[in-house]
Design a protein around this nucleic acid. Sequence first.
DNA 1: AACAATGCTACAAAAAATGAAGCAATTCTT
DNA 2: AAGAATTGCTTCATTTTTTGTAGCATTGTT
Lengths: 89, 89
Amino acid sequence: MAAMDLLGRRGALRVVWELREGRVLTFRALQSAAELPPGTLNTRLGELRAAGVVAAEEGYRLTPRGSDLIGALWPLLRWSEDWANALGN
Amino acid sequence: MAAMDLLGRRGALRVVWELREGRVLTFRALQSAAELPPGTLNTRLGELRAAGVVAAEEGYRLTPRGSDLIGALWPLLRWSEDWANALGN
DNA sequence: AACAATGCTACAAAAAATGAAGCAATTCTT
DNA sequence: AAGAATTGCTTCATTTTTTGTAGCATTGTT
């Protein structure tokens, strides 16, 4: 899985996630949403933009490809919730 | 997404991925499949085992929860392939 | 002009990953 | 049974990443 290298980096999935459903966030808003220091966020944004997942147009937002990625992440979200519940018991 | 913290670490998704479809790998086989140095692999395995995703029984394999995770990763795989193709053009 | 918000850059410290080496405990082979 | 191979790691030094804080330059507002 080639995307693993991109998405496996600290905060990458989180950044994409915070931009789900058409959200448009400023650098600083993304920073606090994704809980990343500015340097890391900037690095991640550079990678995600290079990968055509994120665009910087009047704030940061997902490209169509990024939206597709969100679609592909829903099952993972569901698994994540089950997993969190199971651990919390 | 709570699972992001677990799966967002270097090589975590990759390790799970290499154990897909019932594969049972030795530590060293996993090491070369996932392309991770032993120290990192060992750390990751510790986290994945603690999370109940991987089990160490006659080699490393996924738990039922781990298999569920693989199920949730298929859409991501498909996205990954499309993405790789698009970039490759 | 003063002020707030924005997108970042700079920097030092801490944490994590890498790669190579190697060791102790099995498990073959002969 | 002795030697060789394989396995699951551990160790260590080096490099790479991440973190957190500070702050600067630009743009928009009052």
